[in-house]
Structures are given as C-alpha cells and as structure tokens.
C-alpha cells in the first residue's frame, strides 16, 4: 500500500447527501475480478447521464487531477463493495472529507491508502468554500492538520493505529500474523474448551461430503 504523509491538491465537492456505493460503483461492474483499472467506472451513471448540462465534476479541469473529495452526509452508505474505494483510489483520490460515512466504506478506505476525514458545521463549510474556489488544500497526516492557501490550519482526528498504517503503508495481516499469532493460538485453545461447538469437527463437516455429487436441481 502506498504510504500517505502529505498531499496537496484541489478538492472536488460533491454537493449531495447519501452518495451510496451503488452510485460510486454500479453493481454491474462488480463482475470484474481485479482491483486495478476501475477508475473508468467510478460514478459511471453520473458521468454518463444523457441530461448532463456540464461534465461531472471529476471530468472537469482542474478536478480531473483532484486527490481530495469533499462530500456531505452519509458518503459511501450501502453495500460493502470495496470496489467503491478501489475505483476512487485508482482515479487518484487519497482523501475524502465528509460529514459522515458509511461504516464499511470508512474501514475500506484505510485498507487502500485513502484517508477519510469527518468534518461538519463551519469547518466543513470552509473546506467546501475552498474547494469551490479551486484552491489547493494540504492534508498533513503527520500533524493531523488541514492547511488552506491563506495560512489557516484546521486539526482533524484519526485513530492512531489507522494513522500509523497509512503513514507506513503497513501490511496489517502481516503484522497480526507476526505479533499476535501466539495470542490467537491461545485464544483458540481456550475457546475450544469453553465453546467447542464453534469449531466444526470433521464429523459435522461430513454433511458436505456429497457436494458436487448430489442429485442436481434444475
């Protein structure tokens, strides 16, 4: 994962509540098997709507190069599809600032080098204003600050471990296997003694012995 320290870019403001992950990445493209190259499907219907008066914001200069997305409430609500983050990351988006997020989308961002920031009220208004004026905004993850062209600075919050993971491009699975492997083994031993039914033994799994051999249905 690409480490994240500081980015500076114009910010594209999407002026709408409840942008769900079906809008960000329509379901019919979920049949694709790879993470790469999905940017062309991001906001597909919005970008290709026949009644568009002007191109969708991400197709308009200078926002074609935007690394920051600004949104309203409940951005990324809905389906768990990580494609919604992959397509934005592939487009070049590294940071999304919104009043609130869908929880699964929020978690998926951190796994892909994208920083979601929660801001509301006057602070979000200031960010939207800067975005509308096509000002460059700087996001500094080291300092946890947003810096504006006029020198104003705004702090933001982010979980320590998620910040570390972004800063260092951390392989979370690798670190769990390396640092927590013994704890997992001990937990499993304890759980087998206490709640044995949570571990499926070969006898129970034998119910699947006929998979693929069973009389098939039409």
């Amino acid at each position: 994962m690409k480490p994240f320290t500081t980015i500076e870019s114009v910010a594209a403001f999407i002026d709408e509540d409840a942008i769900d992950t079906d809008i960000i990445f329509p379901a019919r493209f979920l049949l694709l098997l790879d993470k790469a190259g999905l940017a062309k499907h991001a906001f597909h219907e919005r970008r290709h709507a026949p009644a568009l008066k002007q191109p969708f914001i991400l197709d308009r200069a200078p926002f074609t190069a935007a690394e920051i997305l600004v949104a309203r409430k409940n951005f990324g609500t809905g389906s768990s599809r990580e494609q919604a983050v992959w397509c934005l990351a592939d487009f070049g988006i590294r940071c999304i600032i919104a009043e609130s997020f869908g929880e699964i989308f929020f978690a998926n961002c951190f796994k892909n080098g994208v920083l979601p920031i929660v801001k509301s009220g006057e602070e979000l208004k200031a960010i939207r204003k800067a975005a509308g004026e096509e000002q460059k905004i700087e996001i500094d993850l080291v300092d946890r600050t947003i810096r504006f062209q006029d020198g104003r600075v705004m702090a933001f919050e982010v979980d320590d471990y998620r910040r570390d993971a972004l800063l260092n491009g951390l392989d979370e699975i690798g670190s769990i296997l390396r640092d927590d492997g013994d704890d997992i083994v001990r937990f499993e031993e304890r759980q087998r003694g206490r709640s044995s039914w949570l571990h499926l033994d070969p006898q129970k799994l034998s119910t699947f012995a006929d998979l693929g051999k069973e009389k098939i249905l039409d």
Partner: peptide, 29 residues
C-alpha cells in the same frame, strides 16, 4: 453488508470489505 441478518440469532454478524475478508482468511481475526 447484509451479514447483519445473522444477528437475529444473537450473533455479532457484520459485513466487511474484501481486504478484511483476506485478513479473516489468513488470521481468523
């Protein structure tokens, strides 16, 4: 995301992204 369905049984059941699926496959955590 509709994994919350299974909470009807008194389980903690929740939807996750593909990266988290990979983490569960590898670490069970």
């Amino acid at each position: 995301s509709h994994t919350c369905t299974h909470g009807a049984f008194g389980a903690i059941a929740f939807g996750i992204g593909a990266s988290e699926c990979e983490c569960v496959l590898a670490t069970q955590t």
